[in-house]
Write a protein that binds this DNA or RNA. Structure first.
Lengths: 151, 151
DNA sequence: CCGGATCCAGCGGGATACTG
DNA sequence: CAGTATCCCGCTGGATCCGG
């Protein structure tokens, strides 16, 4: 990360035609994934499920701030994309368990790359913005090294 | 991508307390980055600027689908975060050039990791969704070639 | 316990017109 | 050429009530 245009892994094919081809209805798979990642809750859910299997209200309590509606929609979306597996146990009180599929689990890797980048450069960004990095708050929302200080 | 929960690099601290701590106002730097990445145009602009310096209307034509309003706002946002550098040349017809800062350039790496994941799994996702991957449209809008090269 | 249905505020984002 | 300003629509996402 020295020069502006050193060698970037991939992403660009050395040269695009002229105008970016698609982008009309962005059916581009990368764009869709990007939207998913940019989603306010999807990543949180995926990260949590990356640890173990969770039940609905367990996730609801675990995320703190999400509404049932959003949790439901997020899980449905992730399920539709094959990232999350929904398992219903026929109990007297309905019990549903959510877990990550192998596909969803594999997403954790590129995700961690992004999170890592954000952590390493948060100070630079905060400095440019003029916004102090409010202490050394690490990755509070993601449970990356933080004490069980009661919420 | 075999087991569901192998070992994921970072992201989680091996164990979280119980409920995710913050998430109240998500000042978390990772969340902010995620929003940026999820942004409809930011990534496109960053990727384009990853190739070379562009002028305003050059980007406008190059992205195809973006409005001036959004291009301006996107560039301003990226500029505020120190990812993009804006250079004004005092010419008779105003000329402004945009380029990536080293910081912005470094973002291309984790970004390519995500794009790479999306490309490798787009078929699985499309299959689960029941939506055919509309032909073998690779990465139309992103022109990712191959060889993630050693980052 | 799980989640669907409804109502509603906020803002992301497109179209258009105007300025320096 | 490089924006700024205004209008306006649709989606996101929170709150709440309701049903199985």
């Amino acid at each position: 990360m020295s020069a502006a245009n050193t060698d970037v892994p991939s992403l660009v094919s050395t040269r695009l035609p002229s105008p970016v081809p698609s982008a009309e209805h962005d059916q581009c798979p990368v764009t869709e994934i990007l939207r998913r990642v940019g989603d306010k809750w999807s990543v949180l859910v995926v990260v949590l499920l990356g640890q173990r299997t969770y039940r609905f209200n367990e996730l609801h309590r675990g995320i703190d701030g999400i509404s049932q509606r959003m949790l439901t929609r997020t899980l449905r979306g992730l399920e539709l994309d094959g990232l999350v597996l929904r398992t219903v146990h026929p109990s007297v009180p309905p019990s549903v368990e959510y877990s990550l599929t192998p596909l969803g689990s594999s997403l954790l890797h590129p995700l961690s790359a992004l999170a890592d980048w954000a952590l390493r450069h948060q100070l630079e960004i905060a400095a440019v913005r003029g916004r102090p990095a409010h202490g050394s708050v690490g990755l509070a929302g993601y449970g990356l090294s933080r004490s069980p200080s009661g919420s």
